[in-house]
Design a protein around this nucleic acid. Sequence first.
DNA 1: TGGGGCTACGCAAACGTTTTCGTGTTGACA
DNA 2: TGTCAACACGAAAACGTTTGCGTAGCCCCA
Lengths: 346, 346
Amino acid sequence: MKRKVTLKQIAKELDVSVSTVSKALRNSKEISLDTRSKVQAFAKLYNYRPNNIALSLKNKRTKTIGVIIPEIVHHFFSKVISGIEKEANNRGYNVIIGLSNESFDKEVINIEMLANGSIDGFILSVAKETLLLQDYHHFYETINQGMPIVMFDRVVNEIACDKVVVDDKSGSKKAVAKLIESGCKNIALITTKDYVNVGKLRTQGYLQALEEHKVEPKSSLIIKVEENKDKEIEIETLEKEISALLDKEKSIDGIFAVNELYAITAMKVAINKGYKIPEEISIIAFTDGVLSKHAIPSLSTISQHAVEMGERSATMLIDKLEEIVEEEKYNTEVINTTLIERDTTR
Amino acid sequence: MKRKVTLKQIAKELDVSVSTVSKALRNSKEISLDTRSKVQAFAKLYNYRPNNIALSLKNKRTKTIGVIIPEIVHHFFSKVISGIEKEANNRGYNVIIGLSNESFDKEVINIEMLANGSIDGFILSVAKETLLLQDYHHFYETINQGMPIVMFDRVVNEIACDKVVVDDKSGSKKAVAKLIESGCKNIALITTKDYVNVGKLRTQGYLQALEEHKVEPKSSLIIKVEENKDKEIEIETLEKEISALLDKEKSIDGIFAVNELYAITAMKVAINKGYKIPEEISIIAFTDGVLSKHAIPSLSTISQHAVEMGERSATMLIDKLEEIVEEEKYNTEVINTTLIERDTTR
DNA sequence: TGGGGCTACGCAAACGTTTTCGTGTTGACA
DNA sequence: TGTCAACACGAAAACGTTTGCGTAGCCCCA
């Protein structure tokens, strides 16, 4: 087993100095052609590759970006990552991943672990617990130490950093408008509690769409789901709530859910009750994923273009790292949503 | 903006040497209690954290493991990653991710990018193209340089390294046996072409189960799907094939598919043709994911315990890195599968 | 023959740590 | 007063690079 070869070893072997080897490999004309080719041949033979860690230390940059997300087993986040990875790789960066599992503590630990020189900057989406606690000291500290952060999707408005968000409100409006225009009169909303920012915004979009179409909102048509660590329980509870809702409000002919899973759950309950979809009840979900695509019937959704979000985030971060954009200038990019019409809408 | 503080700065500020600071922070009794507390207080005040890169260079270990997977927008792989990340974090390691997108070239580039000192070892699942080309030089080179590799799921048998695999054959047998025992007489198989190792093994399991139950296999009941870069097209083609199959072989009363998506596709076609599921046709998929869980009806599956695979892989790699296991000793761990009975089986 | 100007290389510092070894000061004790 | 141990600290090397600068050797020309 031949260990990795270093400049020093090459130097020793060829009886020249380390600096000569280094310069020869970079084809400096300070070194004679003769020596250059000798060194290069030797380096090639032994498959020399400069040690990244040494370079990082010297250059004070790692060419690595840290990504902290709440969870990875989630279509949206994994799509964002694939976008980040693509753009990062194109520009010669690596991606290191930390998962917060929606926990404040894990988010803090992950950030601290990476902030000590391992990476050049962060791309992250804030954990729910953090949003609930509203404790953002770890973000401030990171930024204060000169490490740029790009937040995506779940952002904290009061923090001065780059952000990439989806236009939740207008996305919801799009969805609800579609339902109304296709003839729905009584549209139920399945959303989250208000502390989840995106849920709140999507709720606002729903209300605005109703208003603009002069439909009176009815609070009895809105379910605000209580999050639960155990998704199974959350969904089971939701099933009961939806079932009760459909029993009580017979006039419901449209459902807008703030995510796929809520929508699928609603569809399941409705189908079990014998409703025809989309003839009797139309359904649209925010967030487009595999579930929607392959559901039977396939679900109409609002796509948030997760891959693009990832790409844009990476672009913003790297632009800042490479000083293509001034340090103190923070932007918020809004990614537009698209309505994907499938089989649950008319 | 206060930059990261270093030992040198603390030393200068407190008018002692760098080594004194270092020792004081590690509570060496070589340093007087007085100096120690002074240094520690100062370090705390300025939130000193040792620079990871410098430590990596010094210690010749990065405490980071590289993970190369074919794609991340895939329930199985993201689950494996979450398992890896969990175990790695528990043991103080970071995880850096590379995506091959099933491409040989990207796999090679990713490995080369990370092998130059950035990480201590690899966990990877081989890209399809690599399996097709059977060009494994990049794996050999990596191992030769003393960097351990753990392969999971899609492994190369001929390479001497640790492996974590799922027992594909027995998993398939379990599924097909279940179908037979619940009364199915004519079980169709939807699988991949044979060069995909796991597809091949699962096909073998199907055949063995039939044999053990004295059912004559019929090649007319088997669809071997031609992979396509464009999944849409692949699935569309598959739909037609399944449709033709169901039209031709009216006696089919069970379907076993080597992955969720194939199973869902089959279910879709069957439902459209008016079959009752599971009464007229039972379906089981290899690979358990969101799709199966939330399909309507929910799909019975063979779970491969992806999170556990990730954890085991990480454990094996780290054990080797920390020399808990001898370097030259390679193991192959087999993760057992579990049949999850849902609504597509009787 | 002396000086100037190349050429081709080596030295050393720097990045931020840790650790081994050396050393100056102090105090105790004979 | 001389010796020795203990104490408290500093210097320097090492990890693997890159790069500015110094310089030995040579040739050329006056």
